[in-house]
Computed example of a mutant assay.
Amino acid sequence: MSGTLDHVMMRVGDLEESLDWYTTHLDYEEKARWEADTFTNVYLGPAEMHDAGAMLELTYNHGESDYEMGDAWGHIAVRVPEGELEAYYQQLMDEGVEDYRDPESCGGRYAFVKDPDGHEVEIVQRDQGALWSLDHTMIRVEDADDALGFWTRKFEYEHAGRWESDTFANYFMRPTDAPAEAMSVELTYNYDGRSYTMGDAWGHLAVEVDDLHEAWDDLMVREAADYRDPASCDDLYAFTTDQDGHEIELLERGDGEPLFPN
């Protein structure tokens, strides 16, 4: 069982403001929407996103505007072409986006901005994937060995890259043989033994699988957490959690169709 990352979910306090930010500055378009009595989910992505590309899910809980960011959730990262980081960062600045960490402060290799809710958005240089498409999602983990073991044993992901410094390490995990355009999960491990607060502004990662019930059975055999099984989710999706409590959704899509089409 090895599925590509389908989307990453974040909660927002003002849906229209967030939609305007992502559609204006990252040129995203609405791919799908689910309206319930108490919440709205909107799925976004570039117009020309790859079949294996991941979407951004914005969740708006009706009447809720304040969320705790916590520090167990890190950021999403979006792509711009190699050598054009400065130009696209300046474009965002000209459009009035918050100046958080400019390219110079990041050694010219990447940069960061924030969306209206304070979610960090990293800008990375890649030669694959559509402009502004999701490259990876970063989460912080308390034990690198446990985290790497979780993604390799439970989801059959492979170790696709690492960055090690004096104080921390980043490990990138992705499905075996996934296209370069697929999103990765970045596991950040700080060597000082700190613990993290989950908060509620960050929601979950979602993995697309071929067969929901078969994938769920595999996870149970591999001793994954039984958080929300398919039956409790109307057999549309299911949830497990990793060793640090990050939620991971499993969902099944037919022929690449969105779960909740417009």
Rank of each mutant, 00 (worst) to 15 (best):
E120H: 13
W216M: 03
G108E: 07
D200Q: 01
T167L: 08
M69W: 14
L251Y: 13
D235A: 02
H213L: 14
T152I: 05
I123V: 08
M1F: 15
G83V: 02
N61Q: 11
D20Y: 07
L148T: 11
D94G: 05
E257P: 02
A72Q: 15
N262K: 02
L187I: 02
F150W: 14
K154V: 13
M9R: 11
L19W: 05
M93W: 00
T152A: 10
A36D: 10
N170K: 10
A224L: 01
D210Y: 00
K114G: 00
R253G: 02
T152F: 03
L251D: 04
T38R: 11
D177E: 15
R101E: 15
G3D: 07
T23A: 03
L219N: 09
E247F: 09
A52F: 00
V42I: 15
W151S: 03
S65T: 13
F260I: 05
A182Q: 10
R126H: 12
L187A: 10
Y171L: 12
R194S: 13
Y189M: 12
D192W: 12
S133L: 01
L259H: 05
G74V: 01
G70S: 06
I139H: 11
D255H: 15
C106H: 05
A206V: 04
D177M: 14
A54N: 10
W21C: 01
L19Q: 06
R194K: 08
E104P: 00
A238W: 05
Y227L: 13
M10R: 14
E223Q: 09
W216I: 02
G108N: 09
G13S: 05
G74S: 13
I139K: 07
F239Q: 05
E164I: 08
A215L: 08
E156H: 13
D66R: 07
P258I: 07
T23L: 06
D226A: 11
F260A: 13
Y110I: 03
F168Y: 14
A87P: 00
G13F: 12
P179W: 01
R153K: 10
W216A: 05
H246E: 04
E142N: 05
V207T: 00
E104Y: 03
M138L: 15
E214M: 05
P261G: 01
V42A: 08
Y110Q: 04
E120A: 14
